[in-house]
Design a binder for these strands. Structure first.
Length: 955
DNA sequence: CTGATCACG
DNA sequence: GACGTACGTGATCAGG
């Protein structure tokens, strides 16, 4: 096969303008705007990746405008005189385009006195004349004249990388109605207001096309003018003939420019990785850098990424928050906020927000539940103190929200305002920043608005500072705390505005001026926090986990929350009733044994009854001066033959199940959707795990037969099934990988029962007892072992436990080294890291309090393992939608595959029965491959999948 | 509001 | 010399 040469000519200057308007306003770690540069970089990357493909380049060069002066200015001094100045934040990006091109080691052509279009035309013709194929990477209509095939058989086409569309002769004809060689004639008639090419006044694309179609050429059309029947058009053609002829010259591309670089020297090879890596690092393009290092088909050579120890010890003790100089910002001034009560005002604000390209958004609602609350208002901020509040659902005290006679303050009709906001909130070109924006996503999704692209200051804070805050609501990432810590500002609190407890009023009843101060401040603070926190990500190594793991997850989790899961109310009600009967019976029996009535549910009363009145031994008082009556104590009593202990244990189980599950879940059913919608927190667990609240669906019973009956109440819709996909032993597998434990790795690779294998190694034989003990030891390892802890669990003495630990370390070399290394690193740096770079801080790791310190040490050993597992399932979740869509499985559609729940190492889906066999392999492979390509694990990730009508059957 | 207890991974 | 034992969560209840 004779390989045909294929030259790609990239119209760099034109691209950057389009990229600027298409992409959000990103900045690099130094604060330089780089959104357009990022777009340019990804485009070059994609082109370079196509090197080996059929339609891909063999040769490639970038053509840039050196100056806007050319021969055209000499013949027409008004040429391009109307060009507006480029936007302020685009100007500094021009030189970066050159840097980017050099970073890719690509030939770059920029000649003074010649426009890029002419240079592209000259190269394209020269290459086509040699019989090469040419692709012009641009969508500039002027260049469409060039499309076609040369006598030597070389084709010239165009590629619009933003729309991934090829433009050949057919596409040109579709656009202009004429063949490519006549495009210049059409353009000459049309003119171009941006380049200030006059054309013929009053002739637009439609008329121009028709004239050329009818007469065959510009000259013929102009010549035919005198014979036309009397019309405005005829007059204009006659009067402005000279303009058209001048325009024809201006739109003609100069195809004989001197070629500064020989075409043969534009050969495209493998891109040298070093300069590219330096460039990507400088501008904080973490995702590309990761691909380069991960060798994922990127343009660079394959290299293995080494999940690193934290590199920068100085970071450890850098004070958080004020370590960076605060960007100069005026103090918060609530009197500067605007309250938008008319369509005109809102219109102006939306326009300003489009221009700002970065807007902080916050919604105010009537309640905390995003699935039920009514929208009361929206606030926006586009700069410090430049914030507004748009009241939408306010009413005066006493009136009801839906009471049409209630007195309402002046406000824009809700649907009108939302229709106006929708284009802004959905525009690709405007970044929407929120504090916990998942909430706003859900509220607005219920009004048909799909907010994107998004940023979240809470998630940014979590990527930077997980674990740093000692305590506090929102895990230390709540807005009031962040404002205090980073901006030194005390926010108005919700309590101050709405009151607390019984006297609390819904936000809709807050007077509008007061509501404006509160709501607009939230948006203002969010805007400020974003500008303050975002740059820290790149500096402190948080970009990868934020951009690649957590940020993409926000809309995914929001979708899961909106889907909810169906629970069978009747089934729960029946269980509640049964549990009520049995607890009542048990209570009577317990009172009888005790010889008096008391509150069984009170540990204090129970302790007194058991150990004082009834005189059982083994009572231990804790620091509260109260006997402990927990499960282990009661089980010991039970073993000594105390019938009351058995009954109390049974009572507790049923009471727990009834109050926490069968009663509470019925209440949690959303009356509108008839489903249960949990709320996931993305910052709930310091290790990076999700947590679930209202209700918590991550602790639904499974371990006991009676508990599993509750799980059976979680069901699929009619005609659907639930599919549960579990990672098997993921944390042990990760421990085997991260600590490089050869015997464990081999056992996993061979698909062995890992606890049995451990039992074999440790005790020399496998039976029920040794396997159970081995399982306990395996978990002990993951949690940071102590001889006393293990002794307690196994019911042996501490020194026996120590012997077992020693045997474990000897049999599984690597584990001890991993533990010691991790603790040393954390002591030194203050944080641990997952394989994907997620940090967890341990501020008490060097505490003088031994218990505190040892607690931190165990947590620090566990965090990289638990956190890596969390990263992996999060990556799987983010990829699941696109993977299902590609397989035609319609993620999120009512008749497609819907992802409903995440339980740390398990994902639960709902789907029509008929899709199961198609969905199973997709889900399986997305989950099993979720660590790659960034991380190549030395153990396979096992995924077990089951299906059934209910959640229990799906296991 | 805190501590004890117990549901999950 | 005493401490207090596995990591990570959230909901509920009793009691101050």
């Amino acid at each position: 096969m004779a390989d045909k040469q294929h030259l790609y000519l990239v119209d760099g200057s034109a691209y950057i303008f389009r990229a600027y308007h298409r992409l959000p306003p990103l900045t690099n770690p130094e604060g330089t705007p780089v959104g357009a540069v990022y777009g340019y970089t990804t485009m070059l990357w994609k082109l370079a990746e196509d090197l080996d493909k059929a339609e891909g380049p063999t040769h490639l060069a970038v053509v840039l405008d050196k100056s806007s002066q050319s021969f055209r200015n000499e013949i027409y001094d008004q040429y391009k005189a109307n060009r507006p100045d480029p936007p302020e934040d685009l100007v500094p990006q021009f030189p970066l385009i050159r840097d980017a091109t050099r970073a890719f080691s690509l030939p770059m052509i920029e000649e003074p006195g010649v426009e890029a279009d002419d240079m592209i035309a000259s190269y394209a013709r020269a290459a086509a004349a040699k019989g090469w194929d040419v692709t012009i990477v641009s969508s500039d209509k002027d260049l469409m004249q060039l499309v076609g095939t040369s006598e030597q058989g070389g084709t010239i086409d165009m590629l619009d990388t933003m729309k991934s569309a090829r433009i050949g002769p057919a596409e040109v004809e579709e656009k202009f109605g004429v063949a490519p060689e006549l495009v210049g004639d059409v353009l000459a008639l049309m003119g171009d207001s941006v380049d200030n090419i006059p054309g013929i006044f009053g002739v637009g694309p439609k008329t121009a096309t028709k004239l050329i179609q009818d007469h065959g050429s510009l000259t013929a059309a102009l010549d035919a003018a005198p014979e036309m029947k009397k019309s405005k058009l005829k007059e204009r053609l006659l009067e402005h003939r000279a303009d058209a002829e001048l325009s024809r010259i201006l739109v003609t591309l100069k195809e004989d420019c001197e070629l500064p670089i020989a075409i043969d020297d534009m050969k495209l090879g493998k891109i040298p990785p070093e300069p590219l890596a330096a460039f990507l690092t400088q501008h904080g393009f973490g995702s590309l850098l990761r691909r380069l290092e991960g060798g994922n088909g990127g343009p660079g050579p394959k290299t293995q990424l080494h999940p690193a120890k934290p590199q920068n010890p100085d970071e450890a003790h850098a004070p958080q928050g004020n370590s960076q100089p605060l960007p100069e910002m005026p103090a918060i001034d609530r009197s500067a906020y605007a309250c938008l009560q008319s369509v005109e005002q809102l219109d102006q604000w939306i326009e300003k927000a489009f221009a700002a390209r970065l807007v902080a958004v916050d919604t105010e609602t009537s309640a905390l539940d995003a699935m039920q609350a009514d929208l009361v208002g929206v606030s926006l901020a586009i700069g410090p103190n430049q914030a507004c509040y748009i009241p939408l659902g306010h009413f005066n005290e006493g009136g009801g929200g839906d009471d049409m006679f209630a007195e309402k303050p002046q406000q824009i009709a809700r649907e009108t305002a939302l229709a106006m906001l929708k284009p802004l909130l959905e525009s690709d070109a405007v970044l929407k920043v929120g504090q916990n924006i998942k909430y706003d996503l859900n509220v607005l999704a219920r009004h048909g608005i799909a907010v994107a692209p998004i940023e979240d200051t809470m998630i940014v804070s979590f990527a930077l500072d997980a674990g740093r805050s000692q305590d506090g609501i929102g895990g230390g990432h709540g807005m009031d705390e962040l404002a205090q810590r980073h901006l030194g500002h005390t926010c108005l609190t919700f309590k101050e505005i709405c009151g607390t407890g019984k006297k609390a009023i819904p936000f809709g009843e807050v007077p509008i001026d007061r509501a404006t101060e509160y709501a607009a401040e939230d948006a203002d603070v969010t805007w400020r926090l974003y500008t303050h926190l975002k740059p820290r990500l790149a500096v402190e190594g948080g970009t990868r986990v934020y951009e690649r793991v957590d940020r993409p997850l926000i809309p995914v989790v929001a979708g899961m929350e909106r889907h909810g899961i169906k629970v069978d109310r009747q089934q729960l009600a029946a269980l509640s009733e049964r549990f009520a009967r049995e607890t009542a019976r048990l209570e009577g029996e317990i009172h009888e044994i005790a010889g008096q009535e008391f509150t069984v549910g009170s540990p204090k009363q129970l302790g007194d009854i058991l150990f004082d009145k009834m005189g059982y031994k083994g009572g231990k008082k804790g620091k509260s001066g109260q006997y402990s009556t927990d499960q282990s104590v009661l089980e010991k009593l039970d073993a000594t033959g105390a019938p009351i202990a058995t009954k109390v244990l049974e009572w507790r189980q049923l009471a727990k199940l009834k109050s926490t599950y069968t009663d509470a879940l019925q209440q949690a059913i959303n009356p509108k959707t008839n489903r249960v919608h949990t709320s996931y927190s993305l910052v709930g667990a310091q290790t990076g795990r999700l947590s679930s609240t209202d209700p918590n669906l991550q602790n639904i019973p499974i371990r006991t037969e009676i508990g599993r009956e509750i799980r059976q109440a979680f069901v699929a819709e009619e005609g659907n099934v639930l599919l549960a996909a579990d990672y098997s032993q993921i944390e042990l597998r990760l421990a085997a990988h991260m600590a490089d434990v050869a015997p464990l790795r081999e056992a996993f690779a061979a698909g062995e029962d890992i606890h049995a294998r451990t039992a074999q190694e440790m005790f020399g034989s496998v039976d029920r007892d040794t396997r159970a003990r081995a399982k306990t030891i395996n978990f002990a390892i993951l949690y940071g072992i102590s001889r006393w802890g293990l002794a307690g669990r196994l019911g042996i003495e501490a020194d026996e436990a120590q012997d077992l630990i020693d045997i474990y370390f000897a049999r599984f070399p690597g584990i001890q080294r991993y533990i010691v290394n991790t603790m040393e690193t954390v002591r030194e740096c203050g944080y641990s890291q997952t394989l994907f770079g997620r940090k967890t801080w341990f501020p008490r790791i060097n505490s003088k309090n031994q218990a505190e310190r040892q607690g931190s040490e165990r947590a620090a050993v566990n965090a990289p393992i638990q956190g890596t597992s969390a990263d992996i399932i999060k990556r799987a979740m983010a990829r699941m939608g696109p993977a299902l869509a590609e397989a035609g499985l319609k993620p999120d559609a009512p008749d497609g595959v819907r992802m409903l729940l995440q339980v740390h190492d398990e994902l639960v889906f709902e789907m029509p029965e008929g899709l199961v066999e198609q969905a199973r392999p997709v889900i399986q492979s997305v989950m099993a491959d979720a660590a790659g390509p960034a991380i190549e694990l030395t153990v396979p990730l096992g995924v077990e999948i089951g299906t059934g009508r209910n959640w229990d059957d799906a296991h």
